[in-house]
Amino acid sequence: MSDVLVVAEHRRGELRDVSYELLTAGRELADSTGGNLHATIISGDVDEYGEDLNREGVDAVHTVDHGEEFNHGVCTQAVEQIANEIDAQYVLAGNTVNGMDFYPAVAERLDMPLVTDAIAFETGDGLSVIRELYSGKTEGTIDVDSETAFVSVRPGEWPAAEGTGDAAVEAFDADIDEEALNTTVNGYEEVGSGDVDISEADVLVSIGRGIEEEDNLPLVHDLADALGATVSASRPIVDNGWLGQERQVGQSGKKVTPDIYIAIGISGAVQHVAGMKGADTIITINNDPSAPIYDIADYGIVGDLFDVVPALTEEFGG
């Protein structure tokens, strides 16, 4: 038992980026165990996906041709069977919404301890997983005192595997018990389409929890008007219903790439940063200099937004 299994992810006809990152993370673990790196892709156009997953460092790809889209029942059964077949020591999946919908169940079935949202590994004498704790304010080392483990990996932390490998891409004949499938995926819906397309904006004035109350929103609208910018927001503002979903920046909202992104009262949680790190210039106004937004901001004002924002609006004649 020294092999590593990576569960790749696809959605609506495309392999997701995290799949290639998982191959890199999986290679790192396989190098430490001296075992082979296996990948599996379940459902969809598995022949095409299987070839795409054959990147440098991959020893075998197991394809499971069953249905078009992710179904956690199918995925759970298939991953359990493949992991047992290859006697996997470590199994890796993406810490994604669909990942969260299957890996806790697989880890239970395989009786493997589960560590989620890894950002790095320490290998050597066994496995340690580095992950954030306390909303990203700290990083913890979690020692795994077990021969085997299931680890979910945060998207964007490992580079994508590249090149072409010489893996055997083979169909795996999973025995799927249809009786045990008690969920039916009926379709998909795009949300957050509105009059505003924040992904097209050149300048975004983006607002987060720091605005405190809905009644304070005019401060930001006034600034955006004075700058000729578009207003966007982090998740809590949209959850509260203060702005529409079409204005949400982040993992579950939109990815934006403006010339200038002004983050006001936004702490810079990883889910938010995933949606705006492609901005050309990031400016933050946030009174907490230890907030993670300062890890990514190019320019900043450590100050009270209720003082700074009106002053800035005034500078532009607002």
């Binding site: 990083e139 913890g140 080392t141 020692d143 890890d295 901001a297 190019d298 320019y299």
Partner: peptide, 17 residues
């Protein structure tokens, strides 16, 4: 089987002007 053995405050990577 899993145990938190170390907790640190990550070094700031800030280059913010």
């Amino acid at each position: 089987a899993i145990e938190l053995t170390e907790l640190v405050e990550p070094e700031s990577e800030s280059n913010t002007e």
